[in-house]
Design a protein around this nucleic acid. Sequence first.
RNA 1: CGGGGUGUAGCUCAGUUGGCUAGAGCGACUGGUUUGGGACCAGUAGGCCGAAGGUUCAAGUCCUUUCACCCCGACCA
Length: 414
Amino acid sequence: MKQSQLFTKTTKNIPKDELAKNAELLIRAGFIHKEMAGVYSLMPLGFRVIKNIKNIVAEEMEKIGSEEIIMSTLQNKEIWQKTDRWDDEKVDVWFKSQLKNGNEVGFGWSHEEPITEMMKSFIVSYNDLPRFVHQFQNKLRNEIRAKSGIIRCREFIMKDMYAFCATDEENMNFYNKTTEAYLKVFKRVGLGDITYVTSASGGLFTDKFSHEFQTICETGEDIIYINKEKNIAVNKEIYNKENLEKMKMEMKDFEEKKTAEVGNIFNFGTNKCEQMGLYFNDKDGSKKPVYLSSYGIGITRLMGVLVDVHHDDKGIIWPGEVAPFDYHLISLAKTDEEKKEAEKVYEKLKQIGKEVLFDDRTNKTAGEKFADSDLIGIPVRLILSTKTLEAGGLEIKNRNENESKIIKIGELLH
RNA sequence: CGGGGUGUAGCUCAGUUGGCUAGAGCGACUGGUUUGGGACCAGUAGGCCGAAGGUUCAAGUCCUUUCACCCCGACCA
């Protein structure tokens, strides 16, 4: 992509209505645009990062047997009434509207009920189980207070996955497989070292505990207690003597950390399906309720957490796999010949399958280009200038390092 | 939803006890000089001072209402 054509704009000014680092940098670097409190649009750069995160998540979910679908945003009131979750007293994040005929509809804040309802058309026998599906979908939640930049939004992209199983064993097996898959996802996006599987309460979803994936992060809204040796973490909401005794641990074993919840997994057992009337005929002819578990990863939130965790005073430092581009090729070419050379490098890099942002702008000074480059945060910066050509090639520098070196153009293409 | 704060140029802000034609920096545009860390000079454009109502000879400034945004708390996949 040529930067002269890229739909974006960077700014030196810190937006006055954003205190959170993630939103500040993403806006300044031109990744997102704020529509209103808790609602952001994605610009091309932001869209690329989101695509990369989605691809990683999709890959890992497919590896454990899930298929991608996409469900509707508009939701049927009657379906939610079956589990008593239509009532605003029970679920306070509903956005609701009306059809022309006066019927109420809801905007999806979660999809357990609709997916379970849908499955009633497809799961009737043990032969139809297990069934795993996931989707990337815009969730709408009427949060009392949007905050922390893109960490707590009213509209956001979420990956939600649902597992329908015949037995508790099958269900727990998938639950454990997903836990592993999630850890892989967080490792791949660059949060592996600071993300913990955390025991938490089930909240609205289940009476039992659930597991959250919590990433250590200043902008986070959760407090968790971590034991690094045993790799155990507990959310503050269930952190008490009684629960610790069950784990045979004491408070002195834990360290308190501020974290952001980047993923969570819930086991509903057969509760939800019993409420919704999703049963199947087992081998012996008996009618049994289906086991359901659900698995979420906040995709846009993940982008925010990544920025909060990976930045310096100059801008964002994207981990490789989620970065909007592999290379930021900056041309400081003066002569036509040099310009041609820069163009050639750009084309060659594309040919070998690299994603390149090519700063071909002629009306910007070197300093401005460097500042933009640091702000945008592409992992590897390549500079082509009179100086580098004289030295035999390009200057290469990683965003997270200070040293640069000259390499031959040919070396880069291997 | 309680408490606190902020709305003035595209962005970030200044604007005194109410006073004449509302300012700066950045950005944009034009011309020129520059060209390895947001460079310089000259010029130009750009405003319903968040919105509505009120007080006053006079309102960006005072009063009332309202909307938006931020922060703290409560809440919370």
